[in-house]
Each structure stands twice: as C-alpha cells, then as structure tokens.
Amino acid sequence: MATVRLSFSPAPVHVRTARLVGVAVARRAGVAEELLDEVRLAIGEACTRAVALHRQYGLTDLVTVEMSDSDSYTVRVIDHGPIEASVGLTKLPPDELADESLTDDALTTGVGFALLAGFVDDLQVRPVEDGSGTEVRMVWPVARR
C-alpha cells in the first residue's frame, strides 16, 4: 500500500493543487480513466468544503488530504471545524435551489454535498478520532494490476 499525504493552508488557491495531486495519485493507483473526472470533482468539493469551514471559524490549521491505494483508492479530507458545522449537511431539492431567500453560501454548500453524494458511491462523513473536525472519506475501485 502506498500513501500520499498533502496538507495545505485553508486558502482557495490551494484546492486546485489538491485536485491535481489527487488525480495524479488516482491514475497511478489504477483508478479507471473514465472515473478521473469524478475523482477530481469530488476531491475538489471535499477540499472546498474544508477550506470554507476553516475560514468560517477563523481556523488557520492546515487541511489534510490523505490518499492511499491498496485494494481500492481511498481519499480522506480532514478539516478541524466544529463537528456541529457538518450536522444537517444535506442535498437541496431543486425547487429550493433558485429560492430567493437561500444565501449563496447555503446554496454552494448544498450543491457541493449533492455533487459529493452523486459522484462518490462509497462516501462517509464522520468526526475525526482525535480532537475536533470531520473526515470526508471517499473510496473508488482500482483495476487489478
């Protein structure tokens, strides 16, 4: 099993770097070419969410992305926001998406989660084991090498 770990300051500019690394490691791990767009989008959404949480709560802690391959390709995106920030994370129904009263942040969060849930078959959002924070864990199949 190989592991690649990337930590970055919670700034939007670094999310692209995380996407690029995540896709490069996925390709090397043997994730099917046709899934790479989805891997790229899902890692980007998970990191965007983590960066937004850190900024919302004024946290300067690094966001961590850990990628590992064994029987599958597993990506864990770890933030340090309060766990209650992740409660109520849900997909928005279409009739609420263009609702005038919905804030841009709430819309983006809801759409982001819809993308994660839609593109990742094996998705878990759970509290980190130590301290405060949430781990978004995503798993994709790899071809036998």
């Binding site: 996407r19 980007g44 959404e45 965007t48 263009a98 819309l107 983006t108 759409v111 982001g112 993308l115």
Partner: peptide, 19 residues
Amino acid sequence: DFLDSTGLGVLVGALKRLR
C-alpha cells in the same frame, strides 16, 4: 474544463439577479 459547486452558485446568483 472544470466547474465546481462554487461556480454553480455564481451562476444561480446571476439567474436570480436577472430574474
């Protein structure tokens, strides 16, 4: 080449503004 939830949010914002 790439569009995420933030970009989608901006497009919805423009739709609402024009509406």
